[in-house]
Design a protein around this nucleic acid. Structure first.
Length: 566
RNA sequence: UGGGGGAUCGUCUAGUGGUAGGACGUCAGACUCUGGAUCUGACUACCUAGGUUCGAAUCCUAGUCCCCCAGCCA
């Protein structure tokens, strides 16, 4: 039945769906929907919802999931977002087939339902100002009071509402409200606004309308029109459920979908709210919506995340009703797991230190065989050139090596990956700064990889590139966006003070092996011993640009850190 | 002092009256031509106090703490 992979996928919502199905509640149908508002880009929190909604549909034979744009507010929405959202959902790996809908396509039936409500005496045109409506609403602990317009006749309401539609009134002069209960302890039931006047063009409906329905009114009806069975949303809509049900109970709709709420995703060390993401972009704390530091789908994609990793993450975090902050380390685990299996290995030196192998013949070049992925032999091997001068990583040499430093130091031996064992016999320093600028080593010709003496043990193996053959590259190393783990909702002090000033480190002058010459934007590699990297769209033939998706786990770094903290 | 929700390892999550389990993480070790991967072991939890019961994370009572709601946003 359930594979080990999917056994963790059970959750209370899937249980409800399964039980409803068993009870024949919706005639055996399972229809969910993902209902973004096209006023921003999707982030990994949306991915959780997408995986849930599309996932539930996929779980059941005949189950379907709609993509519906909740575009009832013409002042913030546009076509660019519609297209970007579609691209992101597709990239994530989900297909809505021909089931793409727009709330704006329902404006006419929505209007007719409103007329129904008015005729039943369940809605009225209010002519209070926005401020007055707020005052009349009361507070959380005091009941509201009825608007003086609440008792208008059905005829007058019908007339006024029709004239609202016809454009006879200015913005803000009238609204259509549900007639429920101004004294309800649930403020959402204190005669909520159903329609407001906005003399602005809608990006799809054009100037056909100057009244627009609110979310609370449009959403349940859109669900009903599409015959959604399970309308899954986040916790903050829990208080709205009585209103959702009220709307459907008072008009003549074909069905009554069930609203179910779950806790939205929070991720440590980053922000997820539209407001904060927008602020980061607008104040240029990041370069754009696809900045690889952002948890947007565009950002994660550019960073090198795979859809598979994001989906696996979404399956494993679970779905529940309690507020939670998932550690970024968990997301990183899933991208490492995915890329470990799939990413070809390659050698790249981020901060080069020149090494001259004194006893290696000048002008000689050997093509050494390197494994593309030890996890997957079918990925084959490649040749890497080796010559007398190579670069190694600056941090792989210490003039005074600390305990357990299994790398290069004066008099010490290490293996160069896929090549020879070398020994450090000389250190050249800059006279003024004292900085180590070059190493002299000797190599043992008997120790070439695969040869008879190759089995000789040394404690460390270093990655390297041949100086004469290396390509130049830039590496963009990312760290978490926020320094603390204070979550996404902290009040008071300006949250941007928690931004990590070192969230991006650009390293230029990197040297990478020549096999990377034709690396295409978007392709992912493991730079051995360092991390997973992805070719950035900024990359060109002249300068390769790599984004570090995530570093490899680094037990040496841990040892050093622990030592420092002592 | 209104209404609606929620509290289980550091984190996320299972459990639905019968041995509190998994994953991430952390620590220790094995292995390794990536200090990666892999493998082994260890680690730590039922918000509190009562009650019901042979037996309670689960049921009852009373507390405590946290989240959401007063847009003509969604």
């Amino acid at each position: 039945m359930t594979t080990p992979e999917s056994s963790s996928a059970g959750n209370f919502i899937r249980e409800i769906v399964a039980q409803d199905l068993k009870a024949g509640k919706h005639g055996g149908r399972v229809v969910t929907r993902f209902p973004p508002e096209p006023n921003g880009y999707l982030h990994i929190g949306h991915a959780k919802s997408i995986c849930l909604n599309f996932g539930i549909a996929q779980d059941h034979p005949g189950g379907i999931c709609h993509l519906r744009f909740d575009d009832t507010n013409p002042t913030t929405e546009n076509m660019e977002y519609v297209e970007a959202i579609q691209a992101d959902v597709r990239w994530l790996g989900f297909d809505w087939d021909n089931r793409m809908f727009f709330a704006s396509d329902y404006f006419e039936p929505l209007y007719q339902y409103a007329v129904q409500l008015i005729k039943k005496g369940k809605a009225y045109v209010d002519s209070l100002s926005a401020d007055e409506i707020r005052e009349y609403r009361g507070t959380l602990i005091e009941p509201g009071k009825d608007s003086p317009y609440r008792t208008r006749s059905v005829e007058e309401n019908l007339d006024l509402f029709q004239r609202m539609r016809a454009g006879e009134f200015e913005d803000g002069t009238h609204v259509l409200r549900a007639k429920i209960d101004m004294a309800s302890p649930n403020v959402n039931l204190r005669d909520p606004v159903l329609y407001r006047i906005r003399h602005v063009a809608h990006y799809r409906a054009g100037t056909k309308w100057c009244i627009y329905p609110t979310y609370d009114y449009a959403h349940p009806l859109s669900d009903a029109i599409e015959r959604i069975t399970h309308s899954i949303c986040t916790l903050e809509f829990e208080d709205h459920r009585p209103l959702y049900d009220w709307v459907l109970d008072h008009v003549d709709v074909p069905c009554h979908p069930q609203q179910i709420e779950f806790a939205r995703l929070n991720l440590s060390h980053t922000v997820m709210s539209k407001r904060k993401l927008l602020e980061l972009v607008e104040k240029e704390h990041v370069t754009g919506w696809d900045d690889p530091r952002l948890p947007t789908l565009k950002g994660l994609r550019r960073r090198g995340y795979t859809p598979e990793a994001i989906r696996a993450f979404c399956e494993h975090i679970g779905v529940a009703k309690r507020d939670a902050v998932v550690e970024m380390a968990l997301l990183e685990h899933f991208i490492r797991e995915d890329l470990n299996r799939r990413a070809p290995r390659v050698m790249a030196v981020l901060q080069p230190l020149r090494v001259v192998i004194d006893n290696y013949p000048e002008g000689q070049v050997e093509q050494l065989e390197a494994v593309n992925n030890p996890e997957d032999p079918s990925m084959g091997t490649r040749k890497v050139p080796f010559s007398r001068v190579v670069y190694i990583e600056q941090e792989d040499f210490r003039e005074v090596p600390p305990k357990k430093f299994f790398r290069l130091a004066p008099g010490q031996e290490v293996r160069l990956r896929y090549a020879y064992i070398i020994k450090c016999v000389g250190v050249v320093k800059d006279e003024r700064t004292g900085k180590v600028v070059e190493l002299h080593c000797t190599y043992d010709p008997e120790t070439r990889s695969g040869s008879s003496q190759a089995g000789r043990k040394v404690k460390g193996t270093l990655h390297w590139v041949s100086a004469a053959h290396a390509l130049e590259a830039e590496a963009r190393l990312y760290d978490s966006l926020l320094m603390t783990d204070a979550g996404d909702t902290e009040e008071g002090r300006d949250w941007t003070t928690r931004l990590n000033p070192n969230s991006l480190e650009r390293v230029t002058g990197c040297r990478v092996e020549p096999s990377l010459a034709d690396a295409k934007p978007g392709s992912r590699y493991q730079f051995e011993r360092q991390g997973y990297f992805c070719v950035d769209p900024d990359s060109s033939k002249d300068t390769l640009v790599f984004n570090r998706t995530v570093p490899l786990r680094d037990s040496w770094a841990k040892i050093e850190k622990a030592r420092q903290e002592q």
